[in-house]
Design a protein around this nucleic acid. Structure first.
Length: 918
RNA sequence: GGGUGUUUAGCUCAGUUGGGAGAGCGACGGCCUUACAAGCCGUAGGUCGCAGGUUCGACCCCUGCAACACCCA
């Protein structure tokens, strides 16, 4: 057989599966469905995707093998803002702008870009082995989904759950659109705290000092607020101050929002440009003084000196002028949270504007109920807290965006400004009796991308039509996503789906952690610490990796730093590991923790694991090439043992899957294949297959057990490592596998096994302990594994005698004795190294082999260990309340333990004296 | 400031009703033993963040504190 090379198998098998139609629902069995969190249509696969889809694919493949009617619904998202931005950047390179192209031209252009680049993420998903149902792939802007969006908007409007109004929203001055909270990234930055003096109207020589991180917003101030209980300012509440550099007079108000400990305890209130101040303004009925245009320049209501200035330039000028006017008390260094647009990178402004909103209150109530009642459960359950915290304090959702790429809002205005909402213009004219001569103009804005995402589980299945798919696969079974979008996506899906489907979008939500780099840092382009899953699969040279990480960076300083750290971390680039190793790694690190450090060394380890499996299969193939043909087969003790071990592993893996503990599933599979199947079972098979003392019935039994166990292992591991398992499964003799592909073979189940009577396992455990004892002596004494040694056995019980005799073949192969002889208990053995298994003494006579001092050292080590244990157990047993209160069986166990330890201690001490006497 | 989570071997992490602390990687020593050197065999290494409490008994339950991470203000 050729060497393990993932490249040779992975591509081939995916194509075969897809061509065979295995990804489609079988149409039989209970329905099981998962909707993919739609990736951006123009995007590429990042580590988060790769991680998430590895888990989902494992779930999906297992369910499919278990006979469920399984659908993993594929689809992509139009990603309004980021796509619009990318296309605008492309246009800029061609020295043109979206405005020049016009709305229709721009949308055409965006669709072209989508068609050109849209295939990449799909190809990458295929490389990951994701068994998505491609045939019914959807896109948020396609015809059907757009219909669903319009339907939902119209119905919500008709019920008064969508309204238009002027509110404070997050405004991106560069992209010139409102953006969602999700797209605002607040990070700590160094800045200043300016202390400004506002003189009292009645006593111009007395000042109130306010501290602000944004002095330019003073132009929009409507009040100064103090805490109602702050004794320093009690007498001033209700008085007025003059706003410096302007002729505005503003009141001093009292509000609990103010933190009296912070700064001077006086806060300037700018209701039109700050979310908190807006609420304070609402409470006190303050006017909204707007001082900024949508492009970030100072607007015309400001004093003429500042009109038209950019906001940062205005800040500089204002601070200078305030200082000149004697109104600047001091400037302090201050770190503050600066909100920036995720896509544009510029500082976001809270700005008043006309927007569309969803009134979420009436939708939230049933959505909270659905989780409280258990109709939807979060895994891990703790994640519910994030959901409840968000839902209890829900603000109306701004759904309009001043963009072109997206679902255009189905609202029209006539010349008087009256609003008509409907499914299309014709419907509106008919419903409202508008004549042909009435001019209607459609709203220019599009909907927030999340609006269409909120309908995802049912819009992708054909809603509003009552399709067969919708009936079969909705509610979906499970949603897998990160905790960062519970608020923005999960909650909205729950609200919208309950509203329009009258059922939950999914029964369970599995919330996974964030994949970070080895230092625990979030992977990001600007940090240059990101990894491309494809590079881990295919490998990449150091040069190419550096280029990739630094290519699109603007700052040279960053570039040098990233290049240095990249070359240090990956001096040789990244080796090819294959998809299976990467997928297994993702499963293995998927604990319930909030973040997971991704370490390439883990992938190395699991690549080695795949290689191990490959070679084990090779061993099985070589040793079963010619099957011994007999009518009755005889199973060896090892065969019985490994079947049992497999069954227990299968039980544990199924349990882990049911608990969504992918790390445990991976661990049990890994340990069984490597530690039990490879390290012991294959070794135990060798003597049986090669010995002339073994009968054909025995050889045949072992050959069958080898093939059957391997076949079972492959099925058990398939959901995690689909490619290598299929490749190896296909190489098995046809009568040892069932069906054309492992993908649709039956998944190993859970079987209650009798845990009491298991003589085979007890025997093999004894063999392992025996061999381990001899290996320990060899290791400590530096005796080569290949060197045959004399082994003497002393004491022991009847079982020891039986087992030694019955399993002599195995012991001979693994312990490699020259001779193995029993000596009477009262006979003084020759100077030897000793190990004790239970009551059996295993002795390796010196005969020039043994290093005396090494052996004394080893014995002392054993004795220290024993003494520590004896002391610990004695402490327990000499405690009367332990005897009185602990369960009888625990006390008995401790007593049995100490008896064994004492005996061994005596034996080791005697041995120590013998060796010392040499 | 509020909330959530984390703290176990040098590193990354398991530890499922409280009853003898585990794995992988790394380290050290020895092996080309006919599936695999991407391997095999052996060894070392931990006051389970700190301080209390409950209990016969605490990595595990309770309280407080500290550090770190993320979310929200």
């Amino acid at each position: 057989m050729e060497k393990y090379d993932p490249k040779n198998i992975e591509q081939h098998w995916y194509q075969t599966w897809e061509a065979a139609g295995y990804f489609a629902p079988s149409g039989q069995g209970p329905a099981f469905s998962i909707a993919i969190p739609p990736p951006n249509v123009t995007g590429t696969l990042h580590m988060g995707h790769a991680f998430q889809h590895s888990l989902v694919d494992a779930i999906i493949r297992r369910k499919r093998m278990q006979g469920a009617n399984t659908l993993w619904q594929m689809g992509t998202d139009h990603a309004g803002i980021s796509t619009q931005m990318i296309v605008a950047e492309q246009l800029a390179l061609e020295n043109t702008t979206p405005m020049e192209l016009g709305r229709d031209g721009f949308i055409d252009r965006a669709f072209r870009w989508k068609d050109e680049s849209g295939g990449q993420i799909n190809q990458q998903l295929r490389r990951m082995g994701a068994s998505l149902h491609w045939d019914t792939e959807r896109f948020t802007l396609d015809e059907g989904l757009s219909q669903a969006v319009i339907e939902v908007f119209t119905r919500l409007y008709e019920e008064g759950l969508i309204y238009r109004g002027k509110r404070l929203v997050n405004w991106d001055p560069k992209l010139q659109t409102s953006i969602s909270d999700l797209e605002v990234i607040s990070e700590e930055e160094k800045g200043f705290l300016w202390h400004l003096k506002y003189p009292l109207v009645d006593q111009p020589d007395v000042y109130l000092e306010v501290a602000t991180t944004r002095p330019e917003t003073m132009l929009g101030d409507a009040a100064v607020a103090v805490h109602p209980d702050d004794s320093r300012y009690q007498h001033l509440i209700g008085a007025t101050v003059t706003l410096p550099l302007t002729d505005r007079v503003i009141p001093i108000i009292a509000d609990h929002y103010v933190d009296p400990e912070f700064g001077t305890g006086c806060v300037k209130i700018t209701p039109a440009h700050d979310f908190n101040d807006y609420e304070v303004g609402q409470r006190h009925d303050l006017p909204l003084h707007e001082m900024m245009n949508p492009d970030g320049t100072i607007c015309d209501s400001a004093p003429s000196a500042y009109q038209g200035l950019d906001r940062f330039e205005a800040r500089k000028r204002l601070v200078e002028d305030l200082e000149a006017a004697g109104c600047l008390a001091k400037v302090e260094d201050h770190t503050l949270m600066v909100p920036r647009g995720e896509k544009s990178g510029v500082i976001v402004e809270p700005l008043l504007s006309d927007q569309w909103f969803v009134r979420v209150g009436p939708l939230a109530e049933p959505a909270i109920e659905a989780v409280e009642s258990g109709a939807i459960s979060f895994i891990p359950q703790q994640a519910e807290n994030i959901y409840f915290a968000w839902m209890r304090d829900l603000k109306d959702w701004c759904i309009s965006r001043q963009q072109w790429w997206g679902h255009r809002i189905p609202a029209w205005y006539d010349e008087t400004g009256a609003i008509y909402v409907g499914r299309n213009e014709a419907e509106i004219r008919a419903q409202n009796g508008l004549s042909e001569t009435t001019v209607l103009r459609q709203d220019d804005d599009v909907l927030d991308t999340w609006f269409s995402s909120a309908l995802w589980t049912f819009s992708t299945l054909g809603w509003p039509d009552e399709t067969e798919s919708l009936r079969t696969f909705h509610s979906t079974s499970l949603m897998v996503t990160g905790h960062d979008i519970i608020s923005f996506w999960v909650s909205r899906m729950i609200m919208m789906t309950l509203k329009f489907m009258n059922e939950v979008p999914f029964e369970k939500v599995y919330i996974h952690g964030l994949v970070t780099d080895a230092e625990g840092q979030k992977m990001s382009k600007s940090k240059g610490n990101g990894l491309d899953p494809m590079d881990i699969i295919d490998g990449i040279s150091a040069e190419a990796l550096v280029k990739k990480r630094t290519d699109k960076l603007l700052q040279a300083r960053q570039k040098d730093r990233i290049e240095r750290s990249t070359r240090k971390e990956y001096p040789e680039g990244i080796e090819a590991h294959g998809t299976d190793a990467l997928r297994f790694t993702f499963c293995a690190i998927a604990t319930s923790a909030r973040s997971m450090r991704f370490d390439l060394k883990r992938v190395d380890g699991y690549r080695n694991f795949c290689n191990k499996l490959w070679n084990a299969a090779n061993f099985v193939a070589v040793n079963t090439e010619v099957l011994v043909n007999v009518s009755d087969r005889e199973e060896s003790t090892a065969d019985q043992w490994i079947r049992r071990q497999f069954q227990e592993t299968s039980n544990k893996v199924n349990l882990a899957f049911d608990d969504h503990r992918f790390d445990l599933a991976a661990k049990h599979i890994y340990e069984f294949i490597w530690d039990e199947f490879c390290d012991w079972y294959l070794e135990l098979c060798k003597p049986i297959l090669s010995s002339s003392d073994c009968t054909d019935a025995q050889k045949s039994g072992t050959q069958h057990c080898l093939l059957e166990t391997l076949e079972s292992i492959l099925r058990l591991a398939h959901p995690l490592i689909p490619f290598i398992t299929e490749a190896l499964w296909q190489k098995l003799p046809k009568n040892f596998r069932n069906g054309p592909s492992i993908m649709i073979a039956a998944y190993p189940g859970s079987i209650e096994s009798d845990s009491v009577s298991d003589p085979a396992s007890a025997d093999i455990e004894w063999v392992k302990a025996f061999v381990g004892a001899v290996r320990n002596i060899r290791g400590e004494q530096d005796i080569a594994p290949s060197k045959r040694i004399t082994i003497l056995l002393q004491a022991g019980d009847a079982e020891d005698h039986r087992r030694q005799k019955q399993h002599a073949l195995l012991l001979d192969a693994l312990a490699k004795p020259e001779a193995m002889n029993w000596i009477e208990a009262n006979v003084e053995p020759p100077p030897s190294a000793i190990q004790i298994v239970g009551t059996l003494k295993i002795l390796v006579p010196l005969a020039g082999l043994i290093d005396k001092s090494a052996e004394l050292e080893r014995l002392n080590k054993e004795l220290t260990k024993l003494e520590k244990e004896i002391q610990r157990v004695n402490g327990k047993l000499s405690n009367p309340s332990f005897i009185a209160n602990a369960p009888q069986e625990v006390v008995e166990k401790e007593r049995a333990k100490i008896a064994g330890y004492q005996k061994q201690k005596t034996d080791f001490e005697a041995q120590k004296h013998r060796v010392a006497a040499i």
